[in-house]
Write a protein that binds this DNA or RNA. Sequence first.
DNA 1: GGGCGTAAGTTGTATATACAACCCAATCCC
DNA 2: GGGATTGGGTTGTATATACAACTTACGCCC
Lengths: 147, 147
Amino acid sequence: MKHAGWRQVGRRIASECLAIRVRRLGRVITRIYDTALTPYGISIAQVNLLAAIAVARGVRPTDLTQVLDVEKSTLSRDLKRMEDLGWVRSGRTARGRGRSLTLTPAGERLLVQVGPAWEQAQQMASAELGKQPFEQLRKLLSPFAPL
Amino acid sequence: MKHAGWRQVGRRIASECLAIRVRRLGRVITRIYDTALTPYGISIAQVNLLAAIAVARGVRPTDLTQVLDVEKSTLSRDLKRMEDLGWVRSGRTARGRGRSLTLTPAGERLLVQVGPAWEQAQQMASAELGKQPFEQLRKLLSPFAPL
DNA sequence: GGGCGTAAGTTGTATATACAACCCAATCCC
DNA sequence: GGGATTGGGTTGTATATACAACTTACGCCC
């Protein structure tokens, strides 16, 4: 066939690209959670880290990059901010290389406090997407849960 | 029941949060497409804009914020970059407020050129997620296609 | 036990993203 | 027509994200 013109290419990409859909979904969902979390001065990205560290106490940053699929430089700065905020602390690992991360008491308290807002955001997302799609999506994306 | 401790809250969030899954998926998918597009010096986010403008010639930025669920300030700067790169041009709207966006010839050419790399990325994403999940996901997210 | 290789982390730079505050010009309304 | 309203856009500031380059310190191996 003749090589496609820009109009065709544009239509095809706009109508079929997975990345574009996923990224838009991300913006919409992120907004919902961040808005719900505003009163606590924390973002869903930060709640993510807080929860991950809570679950796997003593993890090293490098382990988190695997579990979360985040670039190490990104994580480095995100953790820096959260240490500065006093939510996370890092010490030496028992054995081997790298630092070991734990929540501070303030971090633990904060995690408990944001629980209800997170639940509410989860509800709002469900309402936004529709109950069925929400659950289908959650199911489909279970390989991406950090647990 | 007693109020949950931080361990419980952490586990619950880590294991059930939709936002966390969606955001991680976004990172993984974005990386796949951006890597495939590297040779062309363009990101999937920019391809998104290019395609959207190609499809809806003469759109105003404000219209795109609706279609793409992007904040207007974000879009403002993204478009600025693309205008500076010579891919997009903006003129006055026929009637009413706002600017009207079109691709430059270079932008049109680029869109055609990246077509195959995009197809390849779409394939890679399918391989990464599995054929079935890929299609289920695409289907489920069709409300988020900008078309 | 000293040198080397490599894993872990940080730093430089750039984009994508958002919110808040602001600016400007088109429209509306009397 | 002219002042008020408001829609559309930009700018200030901050976070999240990535890649590349660099640093450092652990651990291995002979």
